[in-house]
Design a protein around this nucleic acid. Structure first.
Lengths: 130, 130, 130, 130
DNA sequence: GTGGTCTAGACCACG
DNA sequence: GTGGTCTAGACCACA
């Protein structure tokens, strides 16, 4: 992982450390900054770099593995799996839709105009067309 | 609240009841199904309708009040406040951006194409241009 | 009550309206801005001036009457009683001490120096020697 | 916490248990009986010692954390933070002033002379000069 | 092991 | 009538 893909953990944030780590790795994955087949840093290495307990990093890797994004096998470095090529199952999709609706509602409720919301989303999806 | 604005609580879901309630009211608010100045049902009334404890509804109302969406004062019915007309503060915006990035990453990671994500979001914002 | 003795009620504050009113009248009393024997405004009059329900003012008067500070008799205007000339009972004193200790601890904990606390208190007691 | 720093909870008092606990810890803090950096007892430990539910102690700790007096993080013992070295913000100060004015008014109204009030306060601040 | 969340129930305060 | 507080108990999340 180059310096463009730096991960930062804020221990004083309300979001737990392991989820911050998983979230940032997931984002790097889907944004193409991590190539399939390449290895992630070891749990202990990354933990030291981030200044957290290695169990915390292990928990993050476990979550990503459960989602089918990386492959962790005992004794080997965790490896990035190829991106999924099939749309999610109906119930998964339904749940994502509900969460997205809530997310957008929060953005609108906080004062953002529909146009602002659109702008934010476009800047996130920009350049990705897979 | 008319029948178009029905709220449903799924107690078996992992999302806590009070957040489901707050989320649905928030969505109704930003989608314009609840008019500013009008009163929400009393916590006890809504609680009975939804089959939950009144504290659960009270917690939902409290959260919406903290967000500045409704006004709750002792002894009086909760009332819907007018929508915010200013874009959120920089730090609020930053936090929303981070959460949105995570949300989109999860959608992409679950297998949705960028086009599918776009489609979902457009259908949510459709018709809202304010 | 002259304009120097104006009472203000902040309905959005966390302190209930009736206690704000009672508290301000009590302060005016002990600070000598209201003379014993003189009449307080009628419940309805003061309620209108403050923009609150008259029950709220009535509750404030009731509390002051319970403390022995004013005299409310059915059908007559509330009147200010002469100040007490005896020190409080031991248990009352004990309770006041405990509350004062907490108050001072909060001031110190919020960052005020002992000198600042002293200064605040002296400015409150200044000129009163009865 | 040594035997000089014993905390006592009176469940029959009108002041809620969690506030009694927070108040006593706050007083111990500002009076220097607890050293910055040291750990407070775990919520469950202290709860057992005091004979209250652990949530009651947790609520007390949460309040102290909000005031910036202690640091509580998930999975780690609560720790005492160094005392604040700056005077409080203007609005905080204003609120403290209002509460102090009410406190003093209550003492005076209960029959204490200005001299008695002074005496009580001086005995509380005695020896603290920082 | 630690602290935290969520829901509930009894009771209170307020307007 | 309204909303609110406090405490408790079961269960969960975190480091």
């Amino acid at each position: 992982m180059s310096e463009r893909t730096q991960i930062r953990v804020d221990l004083s944030a309300s979001e737990p450390a392991y989820r911050q780590i998983a979230g940032q790795i997931r984002a790097l994955l889907v944004e193409g900054h991590l190539t399939p087949g390449s290895a992630l840093p070891s749990v202990r290495r990354l933990a030291m770099d981030l200044g957290v307990h290695f169990n915390t990093v292990a928990e993050a890797y476990r979550q990503l593995a459960e989602e089918g994004l990386i492959d962790v096998s005992h004794g080997k470095a965790a490896r990035i799996l190829p991106p999924k090529s099939v749309e999610p199952a109906a119930d998964t999709l339904e749940q994502l839709r509900r969460r997205l609706r809530n997310m957008v509602a929060e953005m609108r409720a906080s004062g953002m105009s529909a146009a602002s919301v659109r702008r934010e989303i476009h800047s996130l999806l920009e350049g990705e067309e897979q």
